[in-house]
């Protein structure tokens, strides 16, 4: 198959090929959707409601495999890249160190909060993914935003009943990404990556008792952006006795 060609041409033509779902975050319907667990319905136009629902205030723990599904996502920052071959470590460190908006490395955003990035006014959306992963591509397409040549920011809060030492943050992302725990870099996924669960795992970390802020940035040129995050204990088992909030 011809991925780079595919991706490149898709990128060039992405604007003209957008088939917009036309749904904002208001007026979600739970009645739509075509793809169910383990089955596929050919010809079904994806709706954002297949992938996300608005975040609630209900107690939420990770899923059965420990994946974190409640996130605040910022609409995509325009970051043109015709291909993903540029995603070497030095490029990414520069891209992720760049300050795009105020309080970028400290903000715990509220749903609907807006930030200014150059000429773009972007909105934070508090969401719960219906999948184990967070399909940023469908987040963008569902909001009628650009899907290629993008930089996404994601924030969530992990609440621990007690201090947890020697845990690891396990991440997969499409494409490259960087992740921080309580303001400190946890790991960098470089290169033209596909989202694979437990692809990259942080060094041993400590989750403190109470709130822990997880922050991530995912960059992509021509690809279907997404990520998945979970924490593993010192035995490599998923941590599930935590709760996830947006604040």
């Amino acid at each position: 198959m011809i991925t780079m060609n595919i991706k490149t041409k898709t990128f060039f033509l992405s604007v003209s090929t957008l088939i917009l779902v036309g749904l904002g975050l208001h007026g979600y319907s739970e009645t739509q959707g075509g793809t169910t667990n383990g089955s596929a319905q050919s010809g079904t136009k994806p709706s954002i409601t297949e992938y996300f629902s608005p975040a609630s205030t209900k107690k939420m723990t990770p899923d059965a495999d420990g994946f974190i599904q409640r996130w605040s996502l910022l609409e995509p920052i325009n970051k043109p890249n015709r291909g993903n071959t540029v995603f070497v470590d030095s490029y990414l460190r520069n891209a992720f160190d760049t300050l795009y908006f105020a309080n970028q490395f400290t903000i715990v955003p509220k749903n609907g909060e807006k930030v200014k990035v150059g000429e773009q006014e972007l909105t934070w959306h508090a969401l719960e993914s219906k999948k184990f992963n967070v399909k940023l591509f469908r987040f963008a397409s569902g909001l009628e935003k650009q899907m290629y040549g993008v930089l996404f920011w994601a924030v969530t809060v992990v609440n621990c009943p007690q201090e947890m030492k020697n845990v690891r943050m396990a991440v997969g992302s499409n494409s490259a990404s960087m992740w921080w725990l309580n303001g400190k870099e946890a790991l960098l996924l470089s290169g033209d990556r596909r989202m694979v669960m437990d692809d990259c795992v942080s060094p041993r970390l400590t989750l403190k008792k109470g709130k822990n802020i997880i922050r991530g940035a995912v960059i992509n040129g021509p690809g279907m952006s997404d990520f998945c995050v979970r924490f593993l204990d010192e035995n490599g088992q998923p941590i599930k006795d935590i709760t996830i909030t947006n604040e």
């Binding site: 198959m1 011809i2 991925t3 060609n5 003209s16």
Partner: peptide, 8 residues
């Protein structure tokens, strides 16, 4: 062609 024409 898997998007060779810009679509899938």
């Amino acid at each position: 062609g898997g998007g060779l024409g810009g679509r899938h």
